[in-house]
Every structure is written in C-alpha cells, then in structure tokens.
C-alpha cells in the first residue's frame, strides 16, 4: 500500500486525488466564513462601494464619470475631452471621488486618462480600504494567512511529487514529464484558489445586491437619463456601465467603448490597479472577476 511504489499511471491518479483535496482545502480556507452582520445598506448608501467590490479602482472612476455626465455636471465635448460645466460643480456632489473627478475635468481630460489618474485612483482605493474593514475584501492579515496556507499546500504538492521523483529515479525510471506537468498545474490551481479577490462575505454581499437589483436590471431599458433618480447609478455600479441601455445613455459607449470580449452584464472587472487588493505575496494571483 505504499503509493510511492505504484506504477506511473496509478501514481498519477493518486497524485491527482491528493491535488484536488489540497486545492479544495486551500479554496475553503481562502473563502473563509460569511459574516452576515454587514448590512447591505452600507453598500447601497454609496454605490461606488458596489462598483469597487465588483470591479476595482478604475471601475469606480468609470462609474463616477458616467454618473457625473448623466447628471450634466461633466460634458463630453466634440474633441473627446470631458469638461466640468459649472464652476460650483464640486459643491453639488457629496462624495470625494465625484469631487476629485470634477476637479480633474476642469481643464478638460480624456476619459481614458481619468482611469489612469493617480489622484483619482488614490481616492478610489479608499473604497477598497472600507471594504476590507467590513470584511468584504481580504485585509492584510487575511492575505498573509492565505499565503501561509498556500505555502503549506505547495509544500505538500511539490513534496509528494518530489518523493515520487526520487523513488522513480532510484529505480532507474526517468519519465517524469507527466508528473512535472501535473505538479505545475496543481500548484497554479492552488495559487488561484488561494487568492480569491472577494471574501465569503464579499461574495455573499455581491449575490445579495444582485437579488436586490434583479428587477432594476429587468427594466433597464426603461431608465431615463438625467440623474433624477439613483437608478442608473445603482445599475452601473452593480452590473457595469455597459448594462445601461445604449438608446437612453449613448454617451457610455463614447466614454468607454465596451471591450470586445465583454459579452454583456458586468464590466471592467479585470483589475487594472494591482495595488488594491492583490494577494500580498506579489502579482499575478487570482482573477479579479473570478469570484
């Protein structure tokens, strides 16, 4: 019953089972437990929090720009620049990110430049910190804990494969390619499972918000521009600006053309600012939109 003495195919099957168990364990640890104490009104009272939870800092800026254009506080000129239309515009908005966007547009700015504007990104990242405080995104200790569990998982995955490699080599067998490939794949999956962008609370919150706005999404085609209600903002924050009907909000496509790969609902969740909520152990971990 010593698995390390098993032949190639049988051991690979054994290794695959071990890998699945390790990855499942890491994913379970990374998800954590959902905390139902976080009130949904914490999110709905500032829809930019929803935009950040679903996307990233750049998405918060996109939603803010959309909101301000819709309210008529920013205008998209024919030369393609966004310009703040009123000198007192900053006094008409309540949120810091809106004020920052208005300030950035006084001299005229291209929409794409806004989502790369460091001052705006800094303002938007404050939402990330809010969400971390509420346990909706992993905070530093959580990320460290995830990293520790990942290191353990990698040690198991690489260790088991290494022992088998040593045993095989001692028996004069050198065909270890499949085992090496399987080990690399298992390690990549373990890393991906470790660095989920959202916590369990965050994922449940996003699901709850989608239930809450189901009807709003269903009647998106009837929304009217002008910012008289918060319907368009809530929809844009929850599902992305491209969920808005192009007929009523034609400027959305001009501001930020829909990426070709974007099939529908959610927008801009591909993590353009890696400094926000990455895995603590460096880049390249976990797709932002994968939760």
């Amino acid at each position: 019953m010593n698995p390390f003495a098993w032949s190639g195919g049988k051991f690979l099957l054994f290794y695959a089972v071990v890998a699945v168990a390790v990855i499942a364990f890491v994913a379970w640890r990374a998800r954590g437990r959902s905390d139902s104490r976080v009130n949904v009104t914490f999110m709905t009272s500032d829809p930019y929090r929803i935009a950040y939870l679903r996307g990233d800092s750049a998405e918060v800026i996109r939603v803010s720009v959309f909101n301000l254009v819709d309210r008529g506080l920013i205008e998209l000129r024919e030369d393609g620049l966004l310009v703040t239309v009123r000198k007192d515009a900053e006094s008409l908005v309540r949120r810091a990110i809106d004020r920052a966007v208005l300030a950035a547009c006084f001299a005229g700015t291209a929409p794409e430049a806004l989502v790369a504007n460091e001052a705006l990104l800094r303002e938007a990242r404050a939402y990330g910190r809010d969400l971390e405080r509420e346990g909706l995104l992993p905070d530093a200790p959580t990320r460290r804990s995830r990293l520790a569990w990942l290191v353990g998982a990698l040690a198991v995955l690489v260790g088991v494969a290494g022992v088998k490699a040593v045993v095989a080599l001692a028996q004069g067998r050198t065909n270890l390619v499949f085992l090496a490939i399987l080990t690399v794949i298992a390690c990549l999956f373990a890393a991906r499972a470790s660095f989920r962008r959202l916590t369990a609370t965050g994922k449940d919150m996003l699901d709850d918000l989608k239930v809450l706005t189901m009807r709003l999404l269903g009647r998106a085609g009837t929304l009217k521009p002008g910012g008289a209600s918060n319907e368009a903002l809530l929809l844009a924050a929850t599902y992305g600006i491209w969920a808005l009907p192009a007929g009523a909000f034609p400027f959305v496509e001009t501001l930020y053309p829909r990426p070709r790969s974007d099939g529908g609902g959610d927008s801009g969740s591909s993590g353009s600012d890696s400094g926000d909520s990455s895995c603590g152990g460096g880049g390249g971990c976990g797709g932002c939109g994968s939760d």
Binding site: T44, T213, R215, L216, R219, S229, E231
Partner: peptide, 12 residues
C-alpha cells in the same frame, strides 16, 4: 431619503 431612493430604484 436614501432608503426610499433605493427601494424606488430596486422595486419601484
């Protein structure tokens, strides 16, 4: 205001 605006947006 906030709760009413939210409920108006979500379920009319």
């Amino acid at each position: 205001r906030e709760p009413l605006r939210l409920a108006h947006a979500t379920i009319r």
